[in-house]
Amino acid sequence: MKRGDGRKKDELRNVRMEVGVLKRADGSAYVEWGNNKVFASVYGPREVIPRFLARNDRAILRCKYNMTPFSVEDRKRPGPDRRSVEIGKVTAGALEPAVILETYPNSMINVNIEVMQADAGTRCAGITAATLALVDAGIPMRDLVSACAAGKANDGIILDLSKEEDNKGQADIPMAIMPRSEEVTLLQMDGILTEDELEEALKLAVGGCKSIYELQKNALMAKYGE
């Protein structure tokens, strides 16, 4: 089977990561994933606002996902909408199992994901970038979180769908795992797949996450030139 951009079925787009790009944030990262361009910044641990959300045995993790108006072909109306609120929520859910929140009781960690350019798979790029930003902020983590999507287009199961494959395809499964234990922290799907196809797609996605994991480790090491 041939794909629109000439990739193999289990091949990722070009991914470039950089850590510590924003000066004023406690931690930050930039991920270029194909034509996706995503910034993630982490502020905290800091005082909890509003106060009633504070938990006296652990920190709380709040994620915000935002798409800039110029990130898509038709101008996106600025501000939060149904979709970005949802992605913010699932991102927090994907990162929470990895972050050791008990280290900072009574505090708050803010993760902001800013999509500069969107081209299918922004939530995976966002989670990948957010993980790097958390590590850059010095927040203790059990493991990195790596995310990647798999899906079905033109009747074939493929890894890391591009914009065209996503829009015209039959199914899309974004997935995030903690690669060391292979624990799944995010799994969503839209579209229709048979059981066997799902099985195959998940296998592909895990493989994709693992290659992302290696890239993440390299990006973190690169900051200190090792």
Binding site: I100, V135, D136, G138, P140, M141, R142, R180, L220
Partner: peptide, 15 residues
Amino acid sequence: SGVIREGNEIYSTVL
């Protein structure tokens, strides 16, 4: 500091 035990293995938690 900066490490966590899981069973018999010890893992780093920070950069």
